[in-house]
Design a protein around this nucleic acid. Structure first.
Lengths: 84, 84
DNA sequence: CAGCAATATACGTGATTGCGTATATTTCGA
DNA sequence: TCGAAATATACGCAATCACGTATATTGCTG
């Protein structure tokens, strides 16, 4: 389970939360490392779509994670229009 | 080269640009699919850290890409403080 | 249970988003 | 080399960020 796929902001947030907990960190503790408020970390983990990229990257960095982009593997390519 | 690592917003933007071009899309064309303006796509690809997560996810979706989170492999864990 | 730590949520503030629209500027093929 | 297409940038606007700070609420653990 060392490789997790996120196709939505919520999934992404859930992954981050899982990793953070596993690292024995609190939202506040993580926030301290990357100069983000605890409340901001909360929003990131909640999967709010409007958080900024810098917030995500900072969290990834602090959790020693990396982001991989690759072509979608299984599942059909969702019909984009359905998202709106 | 079907799997690309991004540790910064700039790297992420560069990956997106490469994939978009390879797909034969223009910024405007991509924007149409995901209801984003060409200018917004431009900023995303330029690696501006403040673009929103929703913008990234929409682009990934339109390009049929997925996002994978995993522990950092090679390279040292950057000293977080150095980022500030 | 009780009580504290952790998390979610709120307020006002200043900064910045993405929008719609428009225009420089750059790139690239004929 | 020229010209159209593509990209970068700008404007005013409404919305929303993350900030600092504070407080409900939740969740553990003893």
């Amino acid at each position: 389970m060392t490789e997790q796929i996120a196709r939505t902001e919520k999934q992404l947030g859930a992954i981050l939360r899982r990793v953070r907990k596993q690292a024995g960190l609190t939202q506040g503790g993580l926030g301290d490392r990357i100069h983000l408020r605890q409340g901001t970390v909360s929003r990131l983990e909640a999967g709010e779509p409007a958080v900024q990229l810098r917030t995500l990257m900072a969290a990834l960095s602090a959790l020693d994670l990396e982001l991989v982009i690759r072509p979608r593997t299984k599942g059909s390519a969702a019909d984009i229009e359905d998202l709106f």
